Computed example of a mutant assay.
Amino acid sequence: MGLPTDLRAVLLDIDGTLVDSNDAHAGAWQKALLEFGHDVSKSAIRDWIGKGGDRLLPELTGIAEASKEGRAISARRKELFRDHYLPKLRMFPRADELVVRMFDQGLLLAAATSATRSEVLALLKIAGVDDLIHVETTADDVSSSKPAPDVVNAALEMLRVPPERAVFIGDTPYDVEAGLRAGVPVIAVESGGWSGRDLKGAIEVYRDVEDLHERWDESFFGTGRMPAPRPRHGRMPRGAVPY
């Protein structure tokens, strides 16, 4: 068997999926918040990584990202991440090989992430796949970050692919919810720190992208079958995807 005949595109999360960067994001947020007098533990922040600052800041501190303080904290976090964390980041093993495999099979590829555009471009270079991604949709392109489906919907629109002909690969419950709310089946990886139990709703769960690459023939990609279409929802029912 080969690729599902109806499959046209793969949407990819980056942080925690292709690049080992979730802890770095949590560290940058923690330091930025502390500089502004907000002492939040890294472990508490870590649970919200995968959402954008528009959600993380108010949910952790009650500060709106669009407020004067929120903008200052977000700008400082961006500086800290760029200057102190980004240069040390590495891709997950065989992440580049998996993306090359998809590209070589003629699939359209999109990055769909809650990170900022400048961070996405840098992270794709770290993963060694910046020249293989057809489009990028980021927090800068939408009004609401994950778990809202906006970045997924934007990627589909840019690729001109309907949701039933795409699959989304991510590492957090917020990726799963965003994909399902857009009507796109989700393959999850545990490399971002979440377990399979936390990733309910995904059609498949793998240890990491290397595991998916090695088990390609027995995976969704090798079976030749698309999953049954799911109805699109305004929001997943509580309990369907853990928060």
Rank of each mutant, 00 (worst) to 15 (best):
L123Y: 02
S114P: 08
G201V: 00
A115M: 08
Q30A: 13
R225D: 09
K51E: 11
E69D: 12
I73T: 02
G192Q: 13
I203G: 13
A155E: 13
K31W: 05
A148H: 06
L107D: 10
A66T: 10
E119Q: 07
S74D: 11
E35N: 10
D208F: 05
E79Y: 09
S143R: 12
E35T: 03
F221I: 08
G16A: 06
A139E: 09
E177S: 07
V40D: 01
D131I: 03
G170K: 00
F221D: 10
A148K: 04
A32R: 12
V184L: 04
Y243V: 03
A122E: 03
R90C: 05
D150A: 03
Y243H: 04
G170F: 04
S143A: 15
P58S: 12
E136Q: 13
H134N: 13
G192D: 12
P4N: 11
D150V: 06
D131E: 09
W48H: 12
G2Y: 05
T223Q: 14
E218W: 07
S67G: 10
V100H: 01
A115V: 09
R46D: 06
R215Q: 15
D20V: 01
E79P: 00
V186C: 01
L56E: 14
A44H: 07
D20Q: 12
L60D: 12
H233I: 00
V186L: 05
R55I: 01
L89A: 04
A240P: 06
V100G: 00
F81Y: 15
S43I: 09
L212C: 06
V241C: 04
R225S: 09
R207M: 05
G222F: 05
D130R: 01
A202N: 14
V152R: 13
Q30C: 11
L56G: 08
R232Q: 00
P227G: 14
R8Q: 13
G192C: 15
R235T: 02
V151W: 00
G239Y: 06
A228Q: 12
D6Y: 02
A148I: 03
E177W: 04
Q30I: 03
D15P: 15
R55H: 09
F92W: 15
L60W: 09
M236E: 10
L12W: 09
K125G: 03
G239T: 07
A166Y: 10
V209H: 00
P87W: 04
V40A: 07
A110R: 15
T138M: 00
S41C: 03
S74K: 15
F36M: 09
E35W: 02
A148N: 06
V152Q: 12
N153S: 01
